[in-house]
């Protein structure tokens, strides 16, 4: 991070100054601002919240939402939990894998990143997905890839 970004982030996190209960919120604010949590941001959060870097790192690694590298332009979350399995999400995941999208490793493919998630609360219209926050019902590999490419363009 440049000094400029560090200063900007510190200003954004000012509301959490000295509040050691605000580590999670500070990390969420960081990710909202930068798009991910760069390694050096952990130091900023630690300093602002007055906790050790190790504590911040512990929180950062516990929650699956946090990313340590810049995310793709388009994030597709594919539900792999039971209700969607009942509607063919296992087959969907295999098909996406064949098309170059591995939801388990969430490896980037061009401007698109597909990742697994456990339940999006759209359990009667599965397989469910979210494309950059937009809910998708009855997902198929074709539908997801087409829409993702549209969004990523």
């Amino acid at each position: 991070m440049t000094q400029f970004v560090v200063d900007d982030l510190t200003a954004q996190l000012e509301q959490f100054r000295g509040n050691n209960y605000a580590v999670l919120q500070a990390l969420q604010t960081t990710q909202e601002m930068i798009g991910f949590v760069p390694d050096s941001a952990l130091d900023v959060v630690a300093k602002v919240c007055n906790v050790s870097r190790a504590e911040v790192y512990g929180v950062f690694t516990f929650y699956s939402d946090f990313k340590n590298t810049a995310p793709a332009k388009c994030i597709v979350k594919v539900c792999v939990a039971e209700a969607c399995q009942a509607n063919g999400s296992r087959e969907l995941v295999d098909e996406l894998h064949n098309q170059g999208f591995d939801v388990h490793t969430a490896k980037q493919n061009g401007n698109v990143q597909m990742e697994q998630t456990f339940c999006l609360g759209n359990c009667a219209l599965g397989p469910a997905a979210l494309i950059n926050g937009q809910p998708i019902a009855r997902a198929t590999a074709k539908k997801l890839i087409e829409k993702a490419n549209e969004v990523a363009r």
Binding site: Y21, V23, Q25, G58, F62, Y63
Partner: peptide, 19 residues
């Protein structure tokens, strides 16, 4: 922030406390 176990009440409290 993406954690199923935080639906357990004491884990939720920890999470609300930023941990």
């Amino acid at each position: 922030a993406g954690s199923y176990v935080c639906g357990e009440e004491t884990a939720m409290l920890e999470s609300l406390e930023g941990k």
